[in-house]
């Protein structure tokens, strides 16, 4: 299948590994490309990329466009943006999907502006309509807003964790196309130092049990109850936006459209009103318990069990019961 007029996925390499969201997008990209009967190509930029290119083919890519250079090892807008623009102008993809990572979002936004194309953020589902146009679904207002982006290609970003990684098949055949790159003689920006650091999300994305708090927690002192409950349950701590704004908890713990996507089995929401911007980041918990003193809170529409009560009355006995030596 040809690289021209096809469906493209930005495959992001960090420290010699593909980010999971790149593979997730290949799975969805394969489904859409088959529906449109076009080729699926991955755009891979970095250094020493051969094994990653093979992994992309195994996960569904028909073609991998590879720009391999030592200077491209870390994401750098000044180098990546014109390079991707050049690839688009040369091969004219129909659709271009990006993971909503730091690098992915930056590259998608800048590239879209350069070619004057629309870019839809926060997509959670795609459909192809009868005119072969990509319908992009974004959760909002208790439903989905359906967008289409103008211009070529149709561009969208998708958060990590929305789609699942396809089963790799190393028998699959694909084509590797090398793209020339020569760094600018006098770049205006450079990376002086690079430090690897694991985020402080505390394993939120992988957590099976999450205790999350919202504005209703009220103050930093009460927030300690959230932390204690999480500790008693051996759970990760999550939050909505207000506790982050108030400084009770780090931004990395924020769950929702502009934070992280989580798939816990058990989700305990405390003092959370249940705005869709938050709930769209919580994927199908098997047990969902909400505690909120406002009986009209939207969270009670979505939880399995609800408690209408002040959290300072419920959490202390609950922490005691769930702690080692408690009545549990």
């Amino acid at each position: 299948m040809s690289v021209e007029n096809g469906l493209w996925v930005f495959a992001q390499a960090v420290e010699g590994k593909l980010l999971p969201v790149s593979l997730e997008l290949l799975g969805e990209g394969r489904r859409l490309a088959d529906r449109l009967d076009v080729g699926l190509s991955a755009i891979l930029i970095g250094h020493n990329l051969q094994p990653l290119a093979l992994e992309l083919i195994a996960c569904g890519a028909d073609n991998v466009l590879v720009a391999d250079h030592a200077k491209l090892y870390h994401y750098r807008g000044e180098l990546y943006i014109p390079l991707v623009e050049k690839m688009i102008l040369r091969y004219r993809p129909e659709i271009f999907l990006f993971g909503a990572t730091q690098g992915g979002k930056d590259l998608a936004a800048a590239t879209a502006a350069r070619i004057g194309a629309g870019l839809t953020a926060h997509c959670v589902a795609f459909e192809i309509d009868e005119h072969k146009v990509l319908k992009q679904l974004v959760p909002a207002f208790g439903g989905h807003c359906v967008f289409r982006s103008q211009g070529n290609p149709q561009m969208a970003t998708v958060a990590p964790g929305v789609f699942t990684i396809p089963e790799p098949d190393y028998e699959r055949q694909g084509k590797i196309i090398e793209i020339d790159f020569s760094p600018p003689a006098e770049p205006a920006t450079k990376i002086v130092e690079f430090k690897t650091e694991k985020g402080s999300a505390g394993g939120l994305e992988e957590a099976e049990v999450i205790v999350a708090g919202g504005a209703g927690v009220g103050n930093a002192e009460n927030w300690q109850l959230i932390e204690k409950l999480a500790h008693a349950l051996n759970a990760a701590v999550g939050a909505t936006r207000p506790p982050v704004d108030e400084g009770w908890v780090e931004e990395e713990k924020m769950i929702g459209q502009s934070g992280r996507n989580v798939r816990p089995k058990l989700y305990l929401a405390v003092g959370i009103s249940g705005d869709q911007l938050h709930l769209s980041g919580v994927q199908n918990p098997e047990l969902f318990i909400a505690i909120n003193k406002d009986p009209k809170a939207n969270i009670f529409k979505h939880a399995h069990f609800g408690v209408v009560e002040d959290l300072t009355k419920i959490l202390p006995p609950l922490i005691e019961l769930l702690s080692p030596g408690g009545d549990n």
């Binding site: 629309g118 319908k135 207002f141 359906v146 967008f147 982006s149 969270i299 529409k301 609800g306």
Partner: peptide
């Protein structure tokens, strides 16, 4: 560059016990 052309409301959730 993007246009919303449809809105699909979700069915009302069942509600908590």
């Amino acid at each position: 560059g993007i246009q919303m052309f449809d809105f699909l409301p979700l069915p009302e959730a069942q509600g908590a016990e």
